[in-house]
């Protein structure tokens, strides 16, 4: 019997998370190399739509639809995924390195006696021997690691794998499992409301730093002109000027959009580690010696309050 690659999928408000399709791309690559099959596991309450969406990518989907999984708790999801891995004789368990993937996967690994390669940015090795590439020291070194256990757990950085395309041959079947009672209770979720695309999924990102003095009006206007997500440097978030989840950096969100515009950001190492995978980087800063210019494809040394309004107007003109 062919071995399976268990993909832990994520649903958000009934829809499949885009990051899951990137994880599926990694899972498919492993499946091809190890002659295995990808099996998807999706859990939650009212996840029919998301399960079908995943199945439309050619995946056999196990759907654990139950009130017990209405909220993601690492304890219960860890039990569920470990059980699904055993049932499907999984040799690999793959998930996106989202806050959920990072929270849950190590618990799955501990239950399976597996090693976990986290936040993987690429696969290497030859044939059925799969090695994993991952960033260490804030992206200052890229390591190639080997997971030595029979079952291998992997979380992948979604921006490093192109979303898997649709395919035929998928199916959805119910997966019934009752986890033992959790010692953790969900209390509430306070979303950061935004009409803009999510940072890690956006095609373009406009980020502001200390130089904005906390006024993000221009950053937001430019982002809206480009249909971009808004990001922020750590200094801005620490100051409470912008919500936590906008922080771009090794310790925040790692982004790799087609276009990244850094405004009033000096470019600390930890910020650079979070965005230097972007295809085209633009930096606007009045300090000509700011380290951000060393990674920017296009640098403009200027006062942001003067040039960003011009930029918004020019981009508006360029579009029409």
């Amino acid at each position: 019997m062919a071995n399976s690659i268990l993909l832990i999928a994520e649903a958000h408000e009934g829809k499949l998370k885009k990051a899951t399709l990137s994880a599926l791309a990694a899972a498919r690559e492993i499946a091809v190399r190890t002659s295995g099959n990808v099996v998807g596991l999706i859990a939650g309450h009212g996840i029919d739509g998301a399960a079908k969406e995943l199945a439309a990518h050619g995946v056999r989907v196990l759907a654990a639809d139950s009130a017990a999984f209405a909220h993601v708790l690492a304890e219960t999801y860890g039990q569920l995924a470990a059980e699904a891995a055993k049932k499907t004789e999984a040799t690999y368990v793959v998930a996106a390195a989202t806050s959920i993937g990072k929270d849950v996967m190590p618990r799955v690994a501990a239950r399976l006696g597996a090693g976990v390669a986290s936040d993987v940015i690429g696969l290497s090795g030859e044939g059925a021997t799969v090695h994993f590439r991952r960033a260490m020291w804030a992206g200052n070194a890229i390591a190639t690691v080997e997971v030595t256990t029979p079952v291998k757990c992997v979380t992948v950085r979604a921006t490093e794998f192109a979303a898997a395309s649709a395919a035929t041959g998928g199916s959805v079947e119910a997966f019934s499992f009752t986890p033992s009672a959790a010692k953790t209770k969900f209390v509430e979720f306070v979303p950061v409301k935004s009409a803009r695309p999510e940072l890690t999924e956006a095609r373009a990102v406009v980020s502001g730093g200390r130089g904005t003095k906390g006024d993000f009006t221009l950053i937001e206007q430019l982002a809206d002109e480009l249909g971009a997500a808004v990001g922020a440097s750590r200094a801005v978030v620490d100051a409470g000027w912008q919500p936590n989840d906008l922080q771009v950096g090794q310790t925040g969100k790692v982004v790799a959009p087609q276009l990244y515009i850094a405004i009033g950001i000096s470019g600390a190492i930890q910020h650079l580690a979070g965005m230097k995978g972007s295809k085209t980087i633009v930096a606007i800063n009045k300090d000509a010696d700011a380290p951000i210019f060393q990674v920017a494809d296009y640098g403009l040394v200027a006062d942001l309050f003067k040039v960003v309004p011009e930029l918004i107007a020019e981009i508006h003109k360029a579009k029409v």
């Binding site: 708790l73 959920i100 010692k183 953790t184 509430e188 979720f189 979303p191 999510e198």
Partner: peptide
């Protein structure tokens, strides 16, 4: 701190 916002959990000790 989770993707898209903040989540409140209550965990029984020891934790």
């Amino acid at each position: 701190e989770v993707d898209g916002g903040l989540e409140r959990l209550e965990v029984a000790l020891p934790a």
